[in-house]
């Protein structure tokens, strides 16, 4: 489903120094996999996730999504792919605090250019109910717990029925109990709905629960 070919990412820090974040990455993730990308901080795992999620572009190399080269797409086409193909779950939840829980979940539906095949509000309410948040529809994100916020974020990631869930340290800001609930939820999505899930983490215990582990260190896959 996703293939990275000789992907490099480097940053020009100043006139002399170039920082190499990703060094010749070759990687393929198949449909229906539950994969973790694990590495210490500064290893390049976040950069890798941003490139897979089409938020960032590689300095060189090719990216294929469903066998289509997306390295040369323009901003509008990349935005559309982020909208429909990927669902992001962030460590910081990244909900918009001045919008209600329901409105946050609806954000991706307002940016889509194709006609939706579902009623967005109905689907958002279904997801809220499924995640036990049906009473929080009108709450604002900063008035609910971290675990609840992360479930709202997962609902938002799911509203467009993406092919890939990209979770960046999804439990990093949560206590152990909430963290394991979120992890359980991601596993359910994988098992019950055959969702492709990629988790980026530094925690070997979390990586151990996934089917496949990709270890990254100093910008290289080990």
């Amino acid at each position: 489903m996703i293939k990275l070919q000789n992907v490099n990412k480097s940053y020009q820090l100043d006139d002399e120094v170039i920082f190499i974040a990703l060094n010749n990455i070759n990687l393929e993730i198949e449909q229906g996999e539950f994969t973790s990308i694990i590495g210490p901080s500064g290893s390049g795992k976040s950069t890798l996730m941003h490139i897979i999620g089409l938020l960032d572009q590689p300095t060189s190399g090719l990216i294929f999504i469903n066998n289509k080269d997306v390295s040369k797409l323009n901003d509008n086409e990349l935005s559309s792919l982020r909208n429909t193909f990927v669902g992001f779950v962030f460590q910081q939840f990244n909900l918009i605090n001045k919008l209600t829980v329901l409105e946050n979940i609806l954000i991706p539906t307002i940016y889509t250019r194709s006609k939706l095949e579902f009623d967005p509000i109905e689907k958002a309410r279904y997801l809220l109910k499924r995640f036990g948040l049906e009473t929080k529809e009108k709450s604002f994100p900063n008035k609910i717990s971290g675990g609840q916020q992360q479930r709202v974020a997962i609902a938002r990631a799911l509203i467009m029925t993406p092919q890939l869930i990209l979770a960046d340290e999804p439990t990093g800001n949560l206590d152990t109990k909430s963290g394991s609930e979120i992890l359980k939820l991601l596993h359910e999505l994988h098992e019950q709905e055959k969702m492709t899930v990629v988790i980026v983490t530094h925690d070997p215990n979390i990586a151990a629960t996934t089917n496949r582990k990709i270890e990254i260190k100093d910008g290289k896959i080990q």
Binding site: G53, D75, S79, S80, R82, T84, F88, I96, I107, P108
Partner: peptide
């Protein structure tokens, strides 16, 4: 917020 919206599929024109 702009970054979040962009990650969720907002175009520059949006």
């Amino acid at each position: 917020e702009i970054g979040i919206r962009r990650a969720l599929g907002a175009r520059t024109s949006d």
